[in-house]
Each structure stands twice: as structure tokens, then as C-alpha cells.
Write a protein that binds this DNA or RNA. Structure first.
Lengths: 185, 185
DNA sequence: TTTAATTTTCATTATTTTCTGAAAATATAG
DNA sequence: CTATATTTTCAGAAAATAATGAAAATTAAA
């Protein structure tokens, strides 16, 4: 085997390991393993891929590929493209990392924070007029959870509305904060 | 039923619905339903609870209560307390929301971001010296993912090291950013 | 020690989630 | 139209995850 072939293999090995690992990381993120793998595959793909390409690469069934692709589309992470003169549907992932992150963050806010806030608001309203020690304590506890999640959610929205370079500037500013500057201030 | 009893019931209903909802929200967060429910129960409990209390309240088995309590302890969200003269173990949750959030955020960084970074670094190192268009593109894509996650992880660490009031100040500052101030700056 | 209370473990069972594959539906070309 | 390519659906199978409950281990009081 000559050097070029070696490099070819090395690259493909790295790619495969990236896809596999991204899959198990997906699990830790509470995301379906296959969905994460398809996403990984599309992120590093140099061309748009068809459902059949994905089935072959990941050795999964059509139904599985199909439903996870739809799920990725519903998250806004993948788009389908149609080439003129061709009947097949092709898929591409957003590759710009900052955009990808914003999409995921907004979706997670929608799925994780918003329903939690709804539940908290409901509990808060139901108990705010009650008397009695325990009811008051409960209501206060719910209120602080609610206040915090509202603030956190709004902050996330602000951040994910930034352009990449604005985010970089903000992050660098935050990293520069020294403890002695913020303590006792 | 008199007014006091009504209020007592209203409070308990709200409490139960909070626990139930927190459980299903937990699922959306990729957290075990029972673990989330035990956590919710402890957050709104006015006293430390025993394993038996928790089993009774949530109608779950001893083994289940036990292992989820241990898991909550390993997250750092719950602590066990022993009362002198008593043999039973009691459990309490951290109730201060900001501390709770910091604990969860650090743990999620450890479980979600750190392993992802490890995988990315591995792929990056394996491919950085390869020639060829596709290998280079791949390496660049991995690099941007890696850079982003590093920055995000470090930022999270900085933020979760803040005191509550510092976080409030920072969040308010971010919320005040107007789009015209940040665009084109 | 012995005894009783309490915690921990773990094989088994139940539940939930994910995947398969083939049939049905839809779309396009000829 | 008819034939063919492609996508979508979904019942059932497989895999993964969570829960039960009883037995074993641990702890501490008597």
C-alpha cells in the first residue's frame, strides 16, 4: 500500500470514528444515537447525500434513516435539496458551527425550558394566594425557579441572536473576567 | 370542608402536579423520570425525607428510590444527613436555585462537552497532517467544532463560578444589549 | 455477641425506545 | 394512462432502560 492509500485510509478511519463517537455522545446529550450519527455524517460529507447513501454508510434500515432525517429537518439542522433532472432527495447539514449551535440551543430552549416554565407558572398562580407556612414556602420556591428559568431563557435567546463575531467578542470578554474583579463588586 | 382544608388541598394538589410535571420535564432533559421526581419532591419538602417517605410519596420500590437517590447524590444535587440518635438516613436537596443550576451545568459540561471534546481532539490530531482535499476539509470542520466547544465549555465554567448576584448583573447587562449596538460594531 | 434496623445489590420483570422491512402512498417520466 | 422510482407509514421485533422485590450485606444498639 502506497502513501496516498494510507492517507486515504487514515482519513476514512478518523471520519468513521468521528461518526461513531458523535453517536454515543448524542446519547449523553439525550439525543437518539442514529440521529446524531446521521448528523455527524452529513456534517463531514463533502456532497449532499441520499437516503440510500446514508443507509449504506451507517448500515441502517430505510425507515430508520427516513424518520431520523425528518427529525433532523424538524430541528432545523438538515435541509433537503433537490437537483434538477433528478428524482432523488438529497440532504445537507448546516456546517457553520455557530449557526448549528444557535439552532440546537433554541430548540433545546423550546423543548426543555419553555415547558418547564409553563408548569412552574401554573403552580405559581395556583398557590400565590394561599395562606399557611408550607404553602407560602412552596410558592416562594416555585417563584425562584420560575424567575431563574425566565432569566436564563431570555439570556439564551439574546445570545443565540448574535452573529458569530459578536459571540466571540462576548465570550472573550467573559473569559477575561478575573475573580478579584467580580468578587465584592 | 372549611376554607383551611380547601387551601391545604389546593397546596398539595399544586405540589403533586409540580412533582409529576417535573418528572416528565426531566425526560425531555434526558434525565430519568423518577430521578427528576425525587429531586422535585426534595426541592419542595420542608423537612429532610427518608427513603421510606420517598417510596410512599411516589409509590416506588425501595431499590428504585435507593438507586435514584444515589444518582442525585453523585450529581451533587442531594445530600444525605444523619440526625444524632437516629439510624435512618435523611435526604435534602440544595434549594438555592443558582447553586442548583451551577451544579447541573457543571455536571452536564462534564458529561456532554468534555467527552465530545476528547473525541474531537482525537480526530483532529489524527488528520491534521494529511494531504488531500477531503482530508483537509474534514480536519478543518473538526477544528471548528473543537474550537467552538472549547470556548463554550470555558465560558460555562466561568459563569458557573460566579456568585448569584454577579450572574444577575451579567445577565441583565446581556439583556440590555440592543441589536443596533452590537450589529456592525 | 445477638438482634433488629437499615442499606445495598441484583436477577427478574416491565416499560419505553428504537429499528426493521415490507406494504401503501405519492410523484414523475414516458 | 402505465410503469417505475421514491418516499412515507406502521405493525411487529429487538434492544435499551428502568423498576421491582426479596435476599444479602452492613450497621449499630442492646
Amino acid at each position: 500500500m502506497n502513501k496516498t492509500e494510507n492517507q486515504e485510509t487514515a482519513w476514512q478511519d478518523a471520519r468513521d470514528s468521528f461518526i461513531a463517537q458523535w453517536g454515543s455522545i448524542g446519547s449523553a446529550w439525550g439525543i437518539n444515537r442514529t440521529m446524531a450519527q446521521i448528523h455527524a455524517l452529513l456534517i463531514v460529507a463533502s456532497h449532499p447525500l441520499t437516503t440510500d447513501n446514508i443507509m449504506a454508510e451507517l448500515k441502517i434500515s430505510r425507515g430508520n434513516a427516513h424518520s431520523n432525517l425528518r427529525e433532523l429537518i424538524s430541528w432545523g439542522l438538515v435541509k433537503s435539496v433537490i437537483r434538477k433532472g433528478e428524482r432523488k432527495e438529497y440532504f445537507v447539514a448546516e456546517k457553520e458551527v455557530w449557526k448549528m449551535f444557535c439552532t440546537i440551543a433554541r430548540e433545546r430552549k423550546r423543548r426543555e425550558i419553555d415547558p418547564a416554565l409553563e408548569a412552574l407558572t401554573h403552580c405559581y398562580e395556583k398557590t400565590k394566594k394561599l395562606k399557611g407556612h408550607e404553602a407560602r414556602d412552596f410558592n416562594q420556591q416555585i417563584k425562584s425557579l420560575k424567575n431563574f428559568l425566565e432569566l436564563a431563557g431570555n439570556t439564551m435567546e439574546k445570545i443565540t441572536a448574535l452573529e458569530h463575531n459578536q459571540w466571540l467578542a462576548l465570550a472573550l470578554k467573559m473569559l477575561k473576567i478575573k475573580n478579584h474583579e467580580t468578587h465584592y463588586s
